[in-house]
Design a protein around this nucleic acid. Structure first.
Length: 437
RNA sequence: GACCCUGUCGUCUAGCCUGGUCCAGGACAAGAGCUUUUCAAGCUCUCGACACGGGUUCAAAUCCCGUCAGGGUCACCA
C-alpha cells in the first residue's frame, strides 16, 4: 500500500511551497488509495513553536487535507538514539567529543557512487566522496534532520518520498543511511520549487508566503489548490479549471514537470474569480458573516440572512477575492455611503452639466416616480426610469451615473436597478433627496 | 567555488520519450473591439516563445555534444 508523508517543521507558518508539497503528497495518496501521514519535525527545541504546529494543522485542514496518522519527532528521540547506537556497534559511526566533553555520534560516509532513480527527474548520480561525515545525534542528544528523517520514513513504512527540489542533495546522504541501517529504500520524487516574481525563492518581499495569508485575503481553498496544482503539473488537453475531486482522478506523478514555476498572483486572482462566480452563495455568506461583523455592518445573530444572500449574488461574479465584498458592498450596510469625491465632482456637480440639464430637478422627479410605484420591484423601477429619461430627452447613462454615485458613493457596482431595489425605497429616496436642492 | 537540477510567449503550460501532422497549441496578463448602466463577467481579435552554437538526419522544439543563463545544496537548521 502506498504511504506518503508530509513533514513540516513548526518553525514557521505553512507557506505556499509547503502547501504545494502537501497537495501533491495528498493527491498521490488519494489517487492510489493509500495513506497520507503527517509528521511534525520538531527536533529543534529552540525554534519549534506550538503556535506554528496549530497554524500548520489549521492551514492543512482549511485546504482539505485529512491525514491518516500524525507523529511528532520530539516524542521519538529514543528510536533515533537506538538506531544511532546500532551504527556505532556496527562500526559505521563514531563518537566525537566536544571540548566541553559532550558526545555527538557521527556517521562515517563511505566513498561510492550513488544512483537515485527519481520519479520526476530520472536517474541522478552522486559521488559520496564529496560528502563529509554526517552528524547523526548532536551533542545535545537531539537527532539531525537527515537521520531522524530516514529512521522515521523507514519505521513509518513510507513508500514514496515526494518533496521539494531543495532536498535533492540530501538524498545521497539519506540513501547511505538507509543502506547502513538495512532499511528498504523508498521511491523518491523531487518537486520543482516555486519561485517569486524576482526569480529567487518565494519570499515575503515578493508577496505573501503563508497559506493562512491567502485565506485572510479572501481566496477560496478550492481556488488556491487549483492554482497550486497548475504550478508544474498539467493533465494535458488544455485543462485549467480542475476541482480537487477531478484532480484525484487525473493525477499522475509522471505529469509533473521538472521546471520551477513562478508564482503569479494575477492568475490566482482569475482562478479565484472563476470559483467565486460558481460558488454556493450560502457558503460565501458563511465566510462573509464574520468579516461583516468585524466591521459592524451586521450584528451577530441579528441580521437578515436572505437579504445578505441576495447581496452576495449581486456581487459574486465581480469579486476577485471574497473580501472585496466588504469594501464594495459597504453602502448597503452603512447609514450614509462613503462618497468618492472625484465621482461626486464628475457626476453630481451641477456646474459640470451641459446647459439645459437640471440634475437636482431630474433627481427630484425620479424620487417622486419611485414613490408612486404600485409595486417596488426591479422591473418597475427600471421601466419608470426608462420612461423618465425618454421624457427628459436624455440618454439613460446620463442619469444612471449620478444616481449610482448618490446611492453608493462609487462609480462602480452592480446594476443600478438592483441596487435601488435592495437598498429599499426609503433609503434610496433619502440618499437621492440630498442632491435635490 | 564544488556538486546537483533546470532552460518553449512577460507568467503558467501542451508538444519532447516514440523526429515530419508545429512557419509551435491553450490559459493568465497586456492591447483593441463587441455588449452595455459603471465595474466584473462573457464573446471576438491582436501582440508574444522553442536560450545560443555545433552536429546527426531528406527532415529537429523534439536525438547528441558544447556554451551560456537561472535555480538549489554544501550546518551539531529542517
Amino acid at each position: 500500500m502506498v504511504r506518503v508523508r508530509f513533514a513540516p517543521s513548526p518553525t514557521g507558518n505553512l507557506h505556499i511551497g509547503g502547501g504545494r508539497t502537501a497537495l501533491f503528497n495528498w493527491l498521490f495518496s488519494q489517487s492510489q488509495k493509500g495513506k497520507f501521514i503527517l509528521r511534525i519535525e520538531d527536533t529543534d527545541k529552540e525554534r519549534s513553536k506550538k503556535e506554528f504546529v496549530d497554524e500548520i494543522l489549521g492551514s492543512l485542514q482549511w485546504l482539505g487535507f485529512n491525514w491518516d496518522e500524525i507523529y511528532y519527532q520530539s516524542e521519538r528521540f529514543e528510536a533515533y538514539r537506538m538506531f544511532a547506537d546500532k551504527l556505532l556497534e556496527a562500526g559505521l559511526a563514531y563518537i566525537e567529543k566536544s571540548p566541553e566533553g559532550k558526545e555527538a555520534i557521527i556517521y562515517k560516509v563511505p566513498a561510492q557512487k550513488i544512483k537515485v532513480d527519481d520519479l520526476i527527474r530520472g536517474e541522478i548520480e552522486f559521488d559520496s566522496s564529496l560528502i563529509k561525515d554526517q552528524v547523526l545525534i548532536k551533542s545535545d542528544g537531539t537527532p539531525t534532520y537527515n537521520f531522524a528523517c530516514v529512521v522515521d520514513d523507514a519505521q513509518m513504512n513510507i513508500t514514496h518520498i515526494i518533496r521539494g527540489d531543495d532536498h535533492i542533495s540530501n538524498t545521497p546522504k539519506q540513501v547511505l543511511l538507509y543502506k547502513a541501517l538495512g532499511f528498504e529504500l523508498p521511491l523518491f520524487a523531487h518537486l520543482p520549487l516555486i519561485m517569486g516574481v524576482d526569480g529567487g525563492r518565494l519570499s515575503k518581499r515578493t508577496g505573501a508566503t503563508a497559506i493562512s495569508d491567502y485565506r485572510k485575503m479572501g481566496y477560496l481553498p478550492e481556488a488556491l489548490l487549483n492554482y497550486l496544482l497548475l504550478l508544474s503539473w498539467s493533465p494535458g488537453e488544455n485543462r485549467e479549471l480542475i476541482p480537487v475531486k477531478d484532480a484525484v482522478k487525473l493525477f499522475d506523478i509522471k505529469n509533473i514537470n521538472k521546471t520551477s514555476a513562478t508564482f503569479d498572483l494575477k492568475k490566482l486572482d482569475w482562478i479565484n474569480n472563476q470559483y467565486l462566480k460558481n460558488a454556493d452563495p450560502e457558503q460565501l455568506a458563511d465566510e462573509l458573516i464574520p468579516l461583516l461583523e468585524a466591521r459592524n455592518y451586521i450584528k451577530k445573530d441579528n441580521f437578515d440572512r436572505r437579504y445578505l444572500l441576495s447581496l452576495v449574488k449581486l456581487f459574486q461574479a465581480r469579486l476577485a477575492r471574497l473580501n472585496d465584498f466588504v469594501d464594495w458592498a459597504d453602502f448597503f450596510f452603512l447609514d450614509e455611503p462613503v462618497m468618492d469625491e472625484a465621482a461626486v465632482r464628475k457626476y453630481l456637480d451641477p456646474s459640470g452639466l451641459p446647459a439645459g440639464r437640471d440634475l437636482p430637478g431630474e433627481l427630484g422627479v425620479f424620487v417622486k416616480r419611485l414613490d408612486n410605484l404600485v409595486e417596488f420591484n426591479v422591473a418597475n423601477i427600471e421601466s419608470s426610469f426608462r420612461e423618465l429619461v425618454v421624457e427628459l430627452g436624455i440618454e439613460a447613462k446620463q442619469l444612471i451615473h449620478p444616481i449610482r454615485v448618490a446611492l453608493t458613493g462609487k462609480t462602480i457596482g452592480p446594476g443600478l436597478f438592483e441596487v435601488i431595489y435592495y437598498l429599499g425605497k426609503e433609503t434610496s429616496k433619502k440618499r437621492l433627496l440630498k442632491w435635490v436642492k
